[in-house]
């Protein structure tokens, strides 16, 4: 079987320091278009930090230094002339805690479009419907689009947050443990949705839940103490890991 894959993001020797503390110790990895890549590893291993280097969210934290390159479509996003605002429109992000704005569901979804200066009511309405449908929550909220997003359940809020990202039509979606604050049913809904979205978006997912990684991802990367230990097809990682550390972690013998 010949798989046609395109590198969309490639990082090369990325080091990240919080002050003097080195949190990422040279990460080199490529992400393929239209695939789900899962980043797994114990807490503090650097997987979330690495995820946040991909849309330069770490810039917001004082005292962070980053070396190496991260290329999106062959462009180094750490080049000095990078427009982070434009970058973040191409690489959307969903956070661990559902974080809808304290506005209506509608206003949450169109937020990114309003930033882009879109005023046309029909265009906004359409975007709201499409994004909420893609996020598999349209049927639940279509009658209360103008109610506060905070009145929804955690799982619904998280899907609204995903719809909010989809509305901007990014190329890549980063998800930082998107289901760790949710119950299994909501998590399952979000997993199914991610599988649906896979064809149109490149999805990079940080997760603590190894079943989740094995269920939905095409590729899995195992991080440990700031190193990328192993990165391969999900099947290989889970059934036939090449590194002892990976095996220990996956079988629960970690420690």
């Amino acid at each position: 079987m010949v798989e046609q894959t395109n590198k969309i993001i490639s990082s090369n020797d990325v080091h990240l320091f919080y002050g003097r503390n080195e949190a990422l110790k040279g990460i080199t990895m490529d992400f393929n278009e239209s695939e789900i890549t899962a980043l797994i590893g114990p807490s503090g291993c650097g997987k979330s930090t690495f995820l946040r280097t991909l849309n330069r969210m770490n810039d917001l934290i004082p005292n962070v230094t980053i070396t190496g390159t991260v290329k999106l479509h062959q462009q180094n996003i750490y080049a000095p002339d990078t427009d982070t605002v434009a970058l973040r429109k191409e690489i959307g992000m969903v956070f661990q805690q559902p974080n809808p704005f304290p506005f209506s569901i509608y206003e949450n979804v169109v937020y990114g479009l309003r930033l882009a200066g879109i005023r046309d009511r029909r265009q906004l309405d359409e975007a709201v419907e499409t994004s909420l449908q893609q996020a598999a929550i349209w049927d639940e909220v279509k009658d209360k689009l103008h109610e506060s997003a905070l009145s929804l359940s955690g799982g619904q809020q998280q899907r609204v947050c995903i719809a909010r990202v989809l509305a901007v039509k990014p190329d890549v979606i980063l998800l930082d443990e998107p289901t760790s604050a949710l119950d299994p049913i909501s998590s399952g809904q979000i997993e199914n949705m991610l599988l649906e979205l896979k064809d149109q978006y490149t999805i990079i997912l940080v997760t603590h839940n190894m079943q989740q990684a094995s269920r939905i991802s095409d590729k899995t990367a195992f991080f440990l103490q700031g190193h990328l230990i192993e990165y391969a097809d999900t099947k290989t990682i889970f059934l036939n890991p090449q590194q002892k550390e990976t095996e220990d972690y996956i079988t629960g013998r970690f420690g």
Binding site: R164, V165, V168
Partner: peptide, 9 residues
């Protein structure tokens, strides 16, 4: 963070 991640200045 959510706002900045959506490409807001």
């Amino acid at each position: 963070e959510a706002s900045l991640a959506l490409g807001a200045t």
